[in-house]
């Protein structure tokens, strides 16, 4: 059975896209067939990490949602470009970056149910083991749907009072949607903080397991989303932390 994993955060800029891309790359590197869908239609971004050539993108998730193409036409095999060896596979389903397309979504919306169908077909047609969903911050309709469809929800938060408050709302809403597995991922932790102490406090506050604490990393800042960190620095301690999250998902 394929697993759907949503990566979400209440506020923007927490590191959702980076988390999704790194975990996906590590899963694929471990021999799993993995897809990543960018449902952040309003401000897409994860394609940047994959370094996909804009000219090569003919169809996007938007086209599928407007009935212009099949979902598999909007999926791109990134395995070779990212150096993923078989049997591992890494697919990307990007959202359109064209301002017209974005404006249209914002104005007319789309049929959220179609999204659910798209996920299922992706899993079937690409024979995926894992489908990762990069979401738009906040709790809008398609995000709620993504959460509802997820087997695992990873909530990314920074050690910041506003993130703490927002994550509490997300955790509560996800519980009402009966998401089978809820995980917290604390990102951009300043080195001065005590990791163990922080982990305990977060787990106690949300009564929810912490999948990992990722330190604020200079190398990550410098890479500046121009690539997937775990593939650039396969032996970096931060990559090790992502790998533990990926292992948790495959366990």
């Amino acid at each position: 059975m394929a697993k759907i994993i949503s990566i979400h955060s209440f506020r923007g800029g927490t590191g959702k896209s980076n988390t999704a891309a790194n975990i996906a790359a590590l899963l694929a590197g471990g021999g799993k067939k993995t897809g990543v869908v960018d449902t952040d239609i309003q401000s897409p971004g994860i394609h940047v990490l994959f370094g996909i050539d804009q000219a090569a993108i003919k169809y996007t998730l938007n086209d599928f949602l407007w009935g212009k193409c099949e979902i598999r036409h909007a999926s791109y095999d990134m395995s070779q470009a990212q150096g993923i060896a078989p049997p591992g596979k890494l697919f990307l389903i990007p959202s359109s970056v064209k301002t017209g397309d974005i404006a249209r979504v914002l104005h007319y919306g789309y049929d959220v149910n179609l999204l659910r169908e798209g996920f299922q077909r992706l899993i079937d047609e690409l024979a995926l083991d894992y489908l990762l969903i990069d979401t738009h911050p906040g709790l809008n309709e398609e995000t709620l749907l993504s959460i509802a469809l997820s087997d695992v929800l990873i909530i990314v938060l920074r050690p910041d009072q506003q993130d703490y408050q927002g994550s509490a709302v997300t955790v509560e809403v996800s519980r009402q949607l009966e998401v089978p597995s809820l995980l917290l991922l604390v990102n951009k932790v300043p080195s001065i903080l005590n990791m163990d102490d922080l982990k305990q406090k977060v787990e106690k506050t949300y009564n929810c397991p912490v999948a990992g604490l990722i330190p604020h990393s200079e190398e990550m800042m410098v890479l500046a989303s121009s690539g997937i960190f775990a593939l650039h620095y396969p032996h970096h301690p931060v990559t090790e932390l992502y790998r533990r999250v990926a292992d948790m998902l495959t366990a």
Binding site: P159, Y164, Q165, V169, E172, V173, I192, L193, N194, L198
Partner: peptide, 24 residues
Amino acid sequence: KKQVEQLQIRIDRKKMDQDVADIV
């Protein structure tokens, strides 16, 4: 170090309940 030791995760339960109720 002192600031870190005093670090607390404060959650405004009332506001949270309100936000959750709005969505649910």
